[in-house]
């Protein structure tokens, strides 16, 4: 194919962009992220509309405890930073550095999920489940969907560490790591808005 010919080998590009098919996969992943932006916007819209509908249940001000939430935020922010360092090491060709920072990212992600499960369990014991009010339904759905994404990301990172260990750094592995990093930073952006529009806004009196 004529159009493919100039792209066939691109050794001067970063590893994840060298193979045209893998490179196209990265573009495809941006399209997936765009659809995820719309998914989360729907959940944010529902929360924005229903956060005042507390029925006879607790208000956002009563439910939210900013201490643990700040810890969760710092864990996820730091994991986003270490994920950036992982890509930095990958661009420098260091498989070892990449694996180590990916592992740190994974552990911080696990800590975040652990704290969130603990927070949700505490909320349910003290205030009731998502059946209680429209506020709690929309809150658990929005924050839980994000937590589900992070949990999936932790499993994905674990699979990548195993793959790196067994196959080393190939264009295919590099593309997978790069798309994971896009996913992980994207989840941090969603969390920034959850932290601001849900938790902090709930504390404005």
């Amino acid at each position: 194919m004529n159009a493919r010919a100039p792209e066939a080998s691109r050794p001067n590009l970063p590893l994840e962009f060298q193979d045209p098919r893998e490179s196209l996969g990265i573009l495809g992943f941006w399209f997936f992220l765009a659809s995820d932006v719309v998914l989360f916007s729907c959940l944010f819209a529902v929360y924005a509309v229903y956060h005042g509908r507390v029925a006879a249940g607790p208000t956002p001000f009563q439910v939210f405890d900013l201490g643990p939430v700040l810890t969760e935020t710092l864990l996820l922010l730091t994991s986003s930073f270490t994920c950036g360092l992982a890509i930095f090491m990958m661009r420098r060709g260091s498989t070892r550095g990449l694996s180590v920072w990916l592992l740190v990212t994974l552990l911080l992600g696990m800590a975040f999920v652990g704290m969130e499960v603990h927070e949700f369990a505490g909320d349910i014991l003290r205030f009731g489940t998502w059946h209680k009010s429209a506020f709690l339904s929309s809150f658990f759905t929005l924050v839980g969907t994000h937590g589900g994404h992070v949990s999936f990301g932790v499993l994905w990172a674990a699979a990548l560490v195993v793959r790196l260990w067994r196959q080393g750094l190939t264009p295919g592995t590099a593309r997978r790591v790069y798309t994971f990093s896009l996913y992980w930073h994207f989840l941090d952006i969603i969390w920034i808005f959850i932290f601001t529009a849900v938790y902090l806004s709930g504390k404005i009196t």
Partner: peptide, 11 residues
Amino acid sequence: QAGLQLGLFMH
């Protein structure tokens, strides 16, 4: 902050 993540971390 979202812009920073996009520009500095997501290349």
